[in-house]
Write a protein that binds this DNA or RNA. Sequence first.
DNA 1: TATCGTTATTGTTTTAAAACTATAACGGGA
DNA 2: TCCCGTTATAGTTTTAAAACAATAACGATA
Lengths: 113, 113
Amino acid sequence: MRAAVKITFLDENGEKFFGEGPCRLLHAVEETGSLRAAAQSMGMAYTKALKILKNAEKALGFALTYRAAGGKDGGGSVLTPEGKEWLKRYEAYRDACIQADRKLYLEFFPEQR
Amino acid sequence: MRAAVKITFLDENGEKFFGEGPCRLLHAVEETGSLRAAAQSMGMAYTKALKILKNAEKALGFALTYRAAGGKDGGGSVLTPEGKEWLKRYEAYRDACIQADRKLYLEFFPEQR
DNA sequence: TATCGTTATTGTTTTAAAACTATAACGGGA
DNA sequence: TCCCGTTATAGTTTTAAAACAATAACGATA
């Protein structure tokens, strides 16, 4: 038995717009340079990946990725500077929460390992 | 914008078996004395409520409720002593996590609210 | 101007969770 | 022995999310 902690960001309407899914998606975009390839690498439909990004960018008020169609290789997607910064802060906060909650777990459930 | 933290307990197979839903359900059972009435008060199907309890009890290895059919009022459900104790510890741990994570939020996102 | 692999949009199909329905069994008490 | 409202179980129907499919537009390059 163990406890899992999940951090999710909500907009002013209480709607989720960022969590582990979008986080992993952004990393995949960084690695592949393409939203389509990123979605595919996660076993996610492209339409869903695009929806996730548009939704998050709308809530945040800035672009997480710069997406371009056309060009020599057909186009592609890259993280914006703001996107990189947001991703870093999200992960730092998430990890701090996980660490803090794990410590609390040992206090509240000392008999569990 | 705000961050929400969700605490979930997983069994050895990584399957969720306890979180806010089951927690609220147990409180409703305490208040109503009936699993059926508890489910109804939450707008939840009885079959789902029963499934939740059986699943959690199996993972924990002890009964959260004592359920009886028949008798003067048709029967009913009450929390076992172990169920009350588990509920109390879950809520205490959950609240400690929420408080710790809220404090961290102010550190990592000081410009928000 | 034709080609390429993207981004973007729309509509359909699958799928899995939840809700719903029906029915049996329980067991005190009238 | 019958009645009551509950627990318990099995099967069906709804519903919402996700996956899938099809198509248009983009724009640098040859």
